[in-house]
Write a protein that binds this DNA or RNA. Structure first.
Lengths: 205, 205
DNA sequence: ACGCTGCTGTGATTTGAGTCACACTATGAG
DNA sequence: CTCATAGTGTGACTCAAATCACAGCAGCGT
């Protein structure tokens, strides 16, 4: 996987230094890329696949915040990285995923020297911030049925497919709800002809 | 109000340019500093007073995200400002407040030229991000009673006082709940000797 | 003093969502 | 094929929170 095609905006000097210092890694579907509390030693740029970013509660709850696709990076990681702090979130590979790891010691230098990197980072902050605001909207203002609808649409958007291959239990976990509630709401949506239910798969209409 | 004392870390060159280009403004308690959807033409640094940052829902709900005190700036504003976009949030003066407005055209230049500004901005991102994560934790994982406790403690922290001068209705609005629920929960907390209720005032013990 | 108006207390009821209990599939391993 | 397992459907119940409906009460203007 050639990462230069995914970040065509990067300047030659930047590409050179990344080439020299960064490491490319592969994670299998389901593998945890970074856990809450772990010290961050590099910023991760996603090249291929999909990464889920979770917030964890004390009592084992996992609440999905957003997805990262190719060309995206996790703002939380970057912000933590800059100050070499611990991760506040958990990152998990949803599919087999390739990631470019950039050592945090480089961050300051890259920010100062390379306009394209600076802009990439600012853009990342902006878009992750927006996602967080959307998440807050959902949990603060919306009921479960609307949140579920949002979840399904977002999933479809990030994959580009109109089918969602996952169990009701997984959806319930991501929304910090319970399986029965999700099953019932999905049933209702099926009756409203918004989707069609299959085993381990939901087809949007 | 001399802002240089509030930002002692700023470099001389930075101070000079701010002195020349920035505008100082006063807002009265209750005044809206920035509304959702408004185009942002400057980044705002709080010098004195307290600012509440809200997220608004379509149907008129106002959900409190966090407070800004002296020396703090709103990350949302800055991020929007850098890309000259519309505000995603509403900012309201909680007390009489003084604010330093820095035109957005300067942002890029300041970021590149002044290390102290760069660090201030990164710090701002970091701390606002953390606050947002805390907000998400609360609405995603906590019940109303715990959220209320968090609300009161945060209010006390940002003001430094152990009394909170506000109505139950205002608290309910900030938490996107209803007045009766808040009144009842407060009553329970009073019975547990956590606080004492007065008219328009809550005394923490 | 009188009467508003805004703040607070409290019961009754409703609703959304979580929990419990259990039945019924598909699917895949052996 | 057969059994085990993971996924799904559904009713009954509980609980937190929102809503409805009032009733006091403090403070203020006249």
């Amino acid at each position: 996987m050639n990462w230069k095609e995914i970040f065509p905006q990067f300047e030659p000097g930047l590409i050179e230094i990344i080439e020299k210092e960064a490491v490319q890694r592969t994670f299998l579907a389901g593998e945890v890329i970074m856990r809450t509390g772990q010290y961050i030693k590099s910023a991760a740029l996603v090249l291929e696949g999909r990464v889920k970013i979770y917030r964890e509660s004390q009592d084992g709850g996992e609440f999905l915040m957003y997805y990262l696709g190719p060309g995206q990076a996790c703002a939380v990681t970057m912000i933590c990285a800059i100050q070499s702090q611990q991760s506040e979130v958990m990152a998990k590979a949803e599919e087999d995923t390739e990631v470019l790891m950039i050592p945090i010691q480089l961050m300051d230098e890259l920010m100062n020297k390379y306009k394209s990197w600076y802009q990439f980072v600012i853009m990342t902050y902006r878009s992750r911030f927006d996602e967080l605001l959307a998440v807050i909207d959902n949990v603060a203002f919306r009921n479960m049925d609307e949140r579920l609808e949002f979840y399904l649409k977002r999933h479809a958007n990030t994959t580009g497919k109109k089918t969602i291959e996952t169990s009701h239990q997984q959806i319930a976990d991501d929304l910090n709800s319970s399986r029965e509630v999700i099953s019932r709401l999905l049933k209702k949506m099926e009756q409203r002809n918004l989707l069609k239910l299959h085993r381990n798969m939901i087809e949007l209409l």
